[in-house]
Design a protein around this nucleic acid. Sequence first.
RNA 1: GCCGGAGUGGCGGAACGGCAGACGCAGCGGACUCAAAAUCCGCCGGGGCAACCCGUGGGAGUUCGAAUCUCCCCUCCGGCACCA
Length: 828
Amino acid sequence: MATTTTDTRRDIERTWNPAEIEPKWRERWQEAAIYQVDDNAPEPKWYSLTMYPYPSGTLHVGHWYAFVGPDIYARAKRMQGYKVLFPMGFDAFGLPAENAAIRHNIHPATWTYENIEQMIAQFDLMGPMIDWSRKLITSDPEYYRWNQWIFLQMLERGLAYRAAGSVWWCPNDQTVLANEQVVEGNICERCGAEVYKRDLEQWYFRITEYAEELLAELDNLDWPEPVKVMQRNWIGRSEGARLSFRLETGNELEVFTTRPDTVFGATFMVLAPEHPLVDKITTDEHREAVGAYRGEARRKSEIERQSTDEAKEKTGVFTGASAVNPVTDERIPVWIADYVLMSYGTGAIMAVPAHDERDFAFARAFDLPIRVVIQPEGEDALDPRTMEAPYTGAGVMVNSGQFDGTPTPEQLPKVIAWLNEQGRGQAEVTWRLRDWLISRQRYWGTPFPIVYCDDCGMVPVPEDQLPVELPLDAEFTPTGQSPLVNHERFLNTTCPSCAGTARRETDTMDTFVDSSWYWFRYTNPNFDDAPIDEERTKLWTPVDIYTGGIEHAILHLLYARFFAKVLRDLELVDHGEPFKTLRNQGIILAAEGTKMSKSRGTQVGPDELVAAHGADALRLHLMFLGPWEQGGPWNERGITGMERFIRRAFQVVTETAGNRMDVKADAADLRRLTHKTIARVTRDLGQFQFNTAIAALIEMTNELMKLKETEVAETTAWRDAITALTLLMAPLTPYTAEEMWEMLGNEFSVHQQDWPVYDESLAAVETVEIPVQVNGKVRERVAVAVDASEEDVTAVARETGKIPDYLQGKTLKRTIYVPGRLINFLVG
RNA sequence: GCCGGAGUGGCGGAACGGCAGACGCAGCGGACUCAAAAUCCGCCGGGGCAACCCGUGGGAGUUCGAAUCUCCCCUCCGGCACCA
């Protein structure tokens, strides 16, 4: 043992001081470029991707939470023998930059690029193993030119098109939105304003072309179930039939129904107010009322058509027209009502009030006939006059001609087959998914590579003239038109085809286009010949694990899957599913349990916390808060505990780093602890269970603290233990572990070392303490060999402590012995 | 309404159907100190002097044994919502 004086000096030298070691190693890592991954390294590849941030200016602790987890995982993976691609970039186009720019009277580009600089510095504080040599910024012309290029390929294949239609408009952001960006029926996902529908001509991507594949392949993805469910619902596949009804005016009216078995009960029809047939079929007598209702519906849609509470209140008017039910030959009235949506199915329905909630409410409101055609088995016959609710369950068909008595929906295919024979309908699948509206009437985005020529019409800009650069000197205050409309030099151009005068398309692309393929670009972000370097992409993709917030469950993740399939069909990549495995981190809320918000001042920044406790302590604190996939409210209190742990681990390693190793002492327990900890940490990190991995390391450290003054601290087992501890801590506390590694006298860098190997034989225990139960209640504990026989354990357990008292005077009916776990005596 | 997910000490949380509460925070007691901080040691679900009893949102069930599996109910969070 050292003397008191040297002890004191050593303590001063070896006190953990993050303010000193963190900047030191940060610089060293940068110099040595240890985080740059070599494409040609011999190890197997691992692509760990985490969703890139929006360059809002600052990273708060919620961002750290999202990035630290994957960083730990990627670091562990690297030590476990993979070459790991862990890149980062910035989702730099979009409305927030523009809005902030307007507010602060600064150019969006200036705002964005300054923010990116700041954020990179903050990232570096965290000590991540990001390979910045692959950084990409989507607002760089070198990046967005490839958005334009991909767009042109899609245009050529009919996957991009321009069409007029009813689209969502955000009056606050002054732009159209994709369906996916409208939440809660009519709220702008970005700004929370109420949106409404306008008829505009816009650009679309034909994502519906891939609906079937997008749905089917979900089954094969290792994704969180909620995300898969959300995508399934969003794509919304419905099986049914398309039926044709003849109108008395001679027109055919097509409807889609999931219940063709109820067609005998169709007692009226309803068209969406916007249905093109409405004008043709409305009789003069009803023209005025129909016109008024259509106007009303239109106005309502502009305010709050799909509002939830009033939704059940059914409104509508009769058109005066009649249709013929194709199976009963009855004349049935044709109405219009806004509960039928033009955007789904055919925009028209056959109404079966006895067996559909909405049709039932409508029939009751307007006193329309109700006919029961499905009868639940074993119940009283349904009576249309007294029914209080429609019957939507299974049953047998009644009042249905030759189908009477047919069980349904089991026999639904039979009904469809018959309708088909009659030439009245056929099976059909309808999707809820709509094409992706990609134009935006805003400035800070990718310009469309399209010009409109007076003579040639719409002309794509040839590939060799890309990028169509976004002019930086535009007046970008939103007006409801793209700001580029007023930029003469951008707007006026010549036709690539005839060289005559032409105007450029002035809308810009939805920012989600940028993020729909960015992970491919990381594999070679400077590649100049194509968006994707095929060779490098083949090497790295598909992404092995993708992490990010669940808020992207539909938007980004659906678009990204769509793009991967398009790029596959363009033969640029060899797979259609980009992300094999997905994990969602939980959200770190403000202390009050509400969402962290910059404007409300509830954001907690990492900088002061790093200054006070060190980045490693903050990393651990965030990861120790709870399961990573759960999140929770921010709470600063526990960070001292992580600081204590790091200090103790640091102390135990550095104080004993110079110990002799030749003492012969029984170190089996120590080895067991080491290997048990290796097993636990390895398993937990691999499952994103950082909290329990940290707990295992704390337990090991606490045990080492107890042992460090004993003779086991002077064995090779001790040396192995503190070496393993350092390596296991490396992904979690990269700075401290690096310092400890150096103190142990090893070569730089700990992050380039191999992961400690778990040896099961060393972790195995020979004896265990198992509970002795009587009738399922624990009464004693007894130490036995792990593999002891039931006879031996029974013999010992029966005599232990109070057990004889419990067995006294009772009959032993049964003994349950689970080796290594417990023994249970059942007595009576 | 429909579809997901979750309810465990004062707090965050842990627990292959097998000792509920690992680990940490906070708290309490002690050591060190002139003192405080830091650090170290001990205690820490509730009731009871104790033996022991109760305890994982509530109720039933399966099982030798349930926080864990099944059913019903309650509460909270998230998604969708007139989608025919």
